Simulated assay, not measured.
Amino acid sequence: MIKHIVLFKLKNPTTEVVNETVAKLRSLEGKVESLIALEIGADILRTERSYDVALTATFETLEGLQAYQVHPEHVKIIEYMNSVRESSIAADYEY
């Protein structure tokens, strides 16, 4: 199994933008065949070191993760995220 974790820091982390971002990310559920599980959450501490939104996705194989990366629905989300994010960090691991 593969875990794909991404943290997003938004340019303008208002409640409205955070909620819209969470909704857009959640819209991937059921649209990408290789995506086994998806968790999305907004940061609740909102400290200086916090990122605003977290995504955790689960895939059966590395090939499934790679298919997700180029899936048209994911590409649409990337376009949106590029417009609202200040930065992001990611980690991918096998377990």
Rank of each mutant, 00 (worst) to 15 (best):
M1T: 05
I2V: 15
K3M: 11
H4P: 01
H4D: 09
H4N: 05
H4Y: 00
I5C: 11
I5W: 07
V6P: 00
V6E: 09
L7H: 05
L7G: 04
F8P: 00
F8E: 05
K9C: 06
K9S: 12
K9F: 13
K9L: 14
L10M: 11
L10S: 07
K11H: 11
K11G: 11
N12C: 07
N12E: 01
P13L: 02
P13K: 00
T15N: 04
T15R: 04
T15A: 11
E16K: 01
V17C: 07
V17E: 15
V18T: 10
V18M: 08
N19C: 12
N19Q: 11
N19I: 10
N19L: 14
N19G: 07
E20K: 14
V22D: 13
V22P: 00
K24C: 07
L25G: 03
L25D: 01
R26M: 12
E29I: 15
E29K: 15
E29W: 14
G30H: 06
K31G: 07
K31F: 08
S34C: 14
L35D: 06
L35V: 12
A37R: 12
L38C: 04
L38A: 09
G41W: 01
A42I: 05
A42P: 02
A42L: 10
A42C: 06
A42W: 00
D43L: 00
I44H: 05
I44M: 15
L45I: 07
R46S: 14
T47Q: 06
T47F: 12
R49N: 13
S50T: 08
Y51E: 02
Y51R: 05
D52F: 03
A54H: 00
A54R: 00
L55G: 02
T56H: 04
T56C: 05
T56E: 13
A57N: 02
T58M: 14
F59M: 10
E60F: 13
T61C: 08
T61P: 12
T61F: 04
T61K: 14
T61W: 11
L62D: 08
L62M: 08
L62N: 06
E63S: 05
E63R: 01
G64F: 01
G64E: 09
L65S: 01
A67M: 12
A67T: 05
Q69F: 10
V70A: 08
V70F: 03
V70M: 02
V70I: 14
H71E: 10
P72V: 14
E73G: 08
H74R: 01
V75K: 02
K76E: 12
K76A: 10
I77D: 03
I78H: 05
I78E: 00
I78T: 01
E79G: 07
E79C: 06
Y80T: 07
Y80Q: 08
M81R: 02
M81N: 02
N82G: 10
S83G: 06
V84W: 04
R85Q: 15
R85A: 13
E86N: 06
E86K: 15
S88K: 09
I89H: 10
I89R: 14
A90L: 07
D92F: 12
D92N: 06
D92M: 03
E94I: 03
